[in-house]
Design a protein around this nucleic acid. Structure first.
Length: 508
RNA sequence: GCCGUGUUGGUCAACCGGUUAAGACGCCUCCCUUUCACGGAGGAAUAACGGGUUCGAUUCCCGUACAUGGUACCA
């Protein structure tokens, strides 16, 4: 439990999807729970896939979620730099060491040659198409070549990669915090490329070296990494010793809600829900992918929902603050099986959080939403009261526009069909009298308005219920919203009278 | 094809050999509300299949099926 250090290592290829955020979350929860450090490192070893602005975007998303690495751990401190492209030389040194120790070798095979090898093996009916012990002595590499030949090739500037030499007839065993003891036969793991022809490391070399150098104690990542775990274990064994190796946990995948497979960006577009944390604009195509934030999610709800996807506390509690999550979290309670994403449930979490949080905490954001639609809020107290009154019927922050706009703007259209069929002179006269009656009201509060309304209705011999819907249409314009008298009280006497008068004209 | 991982209602899932197999989302009914929601009370709905092991298997083991991931000089 001492000195826990975890890391999140995003690949800046654009966007930050649900699975990515959940990986950070679990890392973060674990680190916080054990009083450890949370490190963010950037995996940009494939420069061809690097997208401009993607790194900044990832940090913005994390900031929105309220997940912060220590400053020293992002940009400075003893372990910097954190961007893999800036650590190129370091990886090379370790690759060289591996070669010197005969645990890796130079390979000069061109992609075409490798392809030819695979075609040949396929034709032979071989089950395995790997570059491994069974084939490496037939390939163009330093294992088969004489040392002088290898040297000549390198001196001549022949492109080469460095591959790990997976030993034959052995196996790799390690313990995963979620899955228990895992066992892999070396015959099934191939000689993965460690250093690419451009001198950049592959993920395999980079994680191991970085995790060691940054003293990572616990490595959590997606389940898709399980098949390459043996390579990483071997690298640990050769480079730093198994005693130094972090504890592993391979997190279950987040799956598509409908069909089969891993949840992807396209599924969101297809099924109408976001997959990214925040809006992401691809700089190449200018295509915008919707984010949870912009759709109207609260970060607490977003994280809460994600935490419950693949993990559960074993109790009936479902709504957790981040601190409660930290307290309750344990890797052992993470599920093994992938979970299908359910957008309905995600919205439910948001609804819960809109009720739970102080309205003031999201007031500013709602204010911005209203401003975009031309409603400028000037009175913060009034605004707060309105939010309090309507929040129960909001699932997304964006719902506040529909639910709150009529507190700031008189309706300009009315659902006349809801009123007209039953409208008559008696009702018209009732409202004319009602205007006069409320003018005399001292305290224009819901209870008194209701009393006045009902008294008058009894007096005029009309059922109050039959008058409430018209009243609502007058104030709101449509059939929704809180109790009519609450609305009237909120918008005030003048405004109520004005709206009733105006609607009376329309209903004629 | 080969290798890995997994499989409790439509979805998320609890129960880690003996249970009437929790709970939540969604769905349905009713109540509340002469609005729309919230809320409350009910309801339908689940252990992939076949073998073992055991007094007893949803729980352990083995097969099969299915799903999913990997099989790249992508991460």
């Amino acid at each position: 439990m001492t000195n826990v250090r975890v890391r999140f290592a995003p690949s800046p290829t654009g966007g930050l999807h649900l699975g990515g955020v959940r990986t950070v979350l679990f890392n973060y929860l674990f680190a916080k729970k054990h009083g450890g450090q949370f490190i963010v490192r950037v995996e940009d070893t494939d420069q061809s896939r690097f997208v401009q602005g993607a790194e900044e975007y990832i940090f913005e998303c994390l900031a929105w979620c309220g997940i912060h690495a220590d400053e020293s751990v992002i940009s400075g401190g003893p372990y910097a730099p954190y961007r893999q492209s800036e650590r190129k030389e370091t990886y090379k040194q370790y690759a060289d060491k591996l070669i010197a120790d005969a645990h890796a070798y130079y390979a000069f095979d061109t992609p075409e040659e490798i392809e030819a090898m695979r075609e040949k093996r396929k034709a032979e009916g071989s089950g395995s198409l790997q570059y491994d012990a069974s084939i490496r002595m037939h390939m163009n590499n330093s294992l088969r070549l004489l040392p002088e030949e290898t040297k000549a090739l390198i001196d001549a500037g022949t492109p080469y990669v460095v591959r790990i030499k997976v030993p034959e007839n052995e196996s790799v065993t390690f313990t995963d915090m979620i899955r228990g003891e895992l066992h892999f036969e070396n015959a099934n793991v191939d000689d993965k490329v460690l250093l690419k022809a451009d001198g950049m490391p592959t993920y395999h070399l980079a994680v191991v070296v970085d995790d060691y150098l940054m003293k990572i104690t616990h490595a959590f990542r997606g389940e898709e990494w399980l098949p390459s775990a043996p390579v990483h274990i071997l690298l640990w064994k050769y480079l730093f010793g198994l005693d130094e190796m972090p504890q592993w946990a391979h997190l279950p995948l987040i799956l598509k809600p409908d069909g089969n497979g891993k949840l992807s960006k396209r599924d969101g577009d297809r099924l109408g829900f976001p997959v990214y944390a925040m809006d992401w604009t691809d700089p190449k195509t200018n295509e915008v992918t919707k984010g949870f934030k912009e759709l109207g999610f609260l970060p607490e709800a977003f994280l809460n929902m994600l935490a419950m996807l693949g993990w559960n506390p074993g109790t009936e509690q479902e709504i957790f603050t981040i601190d409660e999550l930290i307290e309750a979290f344990s890797m052992e309670r993470v599920n093994k099986a992938g979970a299908k994403f359910d957008f309905e449930k995600a919205k439910w979490f948001n609804h819960q959080w809109i009720q739970k949080k102080e309205v003031a905490s999201y007031g500013l954001e709602v204010k911005g939403l209203l401003a975009e639609k031309g409603i400028n809020v000037t009175d913060d107290i009034y605004f707060g009261n309105v939010l309090e009154l309507v929040k129960g019927r909001c699932t997304l922050l964006s719902d506040f526009y529909e639910q709150a706009s009529y507190f700031f703007k008189a309706p300009t259209t009315w659902d006349v069909d809801a009123v007209k069929p039953k409208w008559n002179d008696d009702k018209n006269n009732f409202f004319i009298a009602f205007i006069e009656k409320i003018k005399a009201l001292q305290n224009f509060i819901a209870e008194e308005i209701e009393v006045a309304f009902k008294e008058l209705a009894t007096e005029k011999n009309i059922k109050p219920g039959e008058l409430q819907l018209p009243m609502r249409i007058m104030l709101v314009g449509a059939k929704f919203g809180p109790a009519v008298f609450d609305i009237a009280s909120m918008i005030g006497k003048e405004e109520t009278i004005s709206r009733v008068e105006k609607a009376l004209e329309v209903f004629k």
